[in-house]
């Protein structure tokens, strides 16, 4: 099981207070309520760093400072990150956004005090989201932060909101029948 919670990739380091709307994803997708990741991915971080999306690879990590994904707790940017299998490490994140990420089965380690000093933009890192250990591969330096709580890991393993809904439907098959 540890493999699911462990990964290696490139860290893309952002500052503090990166909002969801107009930060993680271009604001114009919000009122349009577009949720197709293929439309959203080309516009990740447009307003923060227009070149960042060209460096993002599946399995990479967004490393952010305080209050990542602040502002309105919309989800389109998180949907795009999830589709790319990009996970989040940040110093803090508003509860509403953390909850939205969990609902999308997107892993976020949100109490990583000082991580934007430890990890530099472009570093290759190894992360264990269960134990909270982050290793800088270039020099082997490591730090341990609070990992993702077991209950939250279970929800993510079961597929977030859709997984929970599917489980409920198996237990209540009458909900699959039209009136």
């Amino acid at each position: 099981m540890s493999n699911l919670w462990r990964g290696r990739g490139t860290a893309h380091v952002l500052g503090d207070n990166v909002p969801h709307d107009g930060g993680v994803i271009n604001f114009r997708f919000i009122p349009l309520r577009i949720t197709d990741p293929n439309e959203l991915i080309p516009h990740l971080f447009d307003e923060v760093d227009p070149t960042l999306k060209t460096r993002l690879k599946p399995g990479d990590f967004i490393v952010a400072g305080d209050n990542f994904c602040c502002g309105k707790a919309h989800t389109q940017g998180l949907i795009a990150l999830k589709a790319l299998n990009i996970r989040i490490l940040c110093q803090s994140m508003p509860y509403r956004s953390f909850r939205a990420a969990t609902g999308l089965a997107l892993a976020a380690m949100v109490q990583c005090d000082g991580i934007t000093s430890f990890v530099r933009d472009g570093d290759e890192i190894d992360v264990d989201f269960a134990t909270g250990e982050v290793v800088r591969l270039a020099d082997g330096e490591r730090r341990t932060y609070p990992g993702i709580a077991p209950d939250i890991r279970t929800m993510i393993e079961e597929g977030g909101m859709k997984g929970l809904l599917a489980k409920h439907l198996r237990e209540h098959p009458e909900l699959a029948e039209a009136y």
């Binding site: 909101m161 859709k162 809904l165 439907l169 209540h172 909900l175 699959a176 029948e177 039209a178």
Partner: peptide, 11 residues
């Protein structure tokens, strides 16, 4: 979202 999972009704 609910239809994709298979729901025709709600609780």
């Amino acid at each position: 979202i609910l239809t994709e999972v298979g729901y025709q009704r709600i609780t």
